[in-house]
Amino acid sequence: MLEARLEQANLLKKVVDAIKDLVQDCNFDCNDSGIALQAMDNSHVALVSMMLKSESFSPFRCDRNIALGINLTSLTKVLRCAANEDILTLKAEDAPDVVNLVFESAESDRLSEYDIKLMDIDQEHLGIPETEYAATISMPSAEFQKICRDLMALSESVSIECTKEGVKFACSGDIGSGSVTLRSHTNVEKPQLNVEIDLSEPVALTFSLKYLVNFCKASGLSEQVRLCLSNEVPLLVEYALSNNSYLRFYLAPKIGD
């Protein structure tokens, strides 16, 4: 059986909120290392990979691997019933047909309990090869979100070019063109505002801004976002969570002009 208790429902609320417009039905794969989720959007252009390590929960108990097939719209409806600060406990039997969610409010003695019916989702799993990326950019997540939104006003696609001078986000469309260039930057007082660019070789790739703006819904989960690029492989956009948990998005590039 599974029993996973989260100090703040807020974490799961924000994670589900960040991915519910990209994927609909997902398997939450529970095992002794934590709760994982991997799902692609309908067009197989983007993939979300979430890992909530067992350390994020206390207590965490998962006697055997359990796949919880859940519709994210249903999960969103139930999570709306939890206050951000509520203690959230997920429970499921082995081979369950429902997942049980309990929300306890810290100060007032209120306890809410919901069951969500599970679905049978036979999702193919994609093997994501370990990649030594040519370029890794760590930057404020809010800044990346603004760049994507700003450039999406001009074009559907953005080219991301990393050289030793820095990283340039550029686009062109019917009304004209635009670009944002960032260089490594250290803010001593506020390290969360740092921009760090690690480059082993120059790289330039083009991506859909619609998907990048969608990924940026996760910006509230982490002050920094990490972009990993190599020629001819999908972009990795990673939002690190506490306890080595993470929310990752992979996006296939656009090719040719």
Binding site: M40, S43, H44, V45, A46, L47, E124, H125, L126, G127, I128, P129, E156, S157, T206, S208, E232, V233, P234, Y250, A252, P253, K254, I255, G256, D257
Partner: peptide
């Protein structure tokens, strides 16, 4: 306009 590839070009079904 640039052509959108999909993930099957890069990740293998496991």
């Amino acid at each position: 306009a640039p052509f959108q590839t999909d993930l099957y070009n890069y990740f293998i079904k496991s």
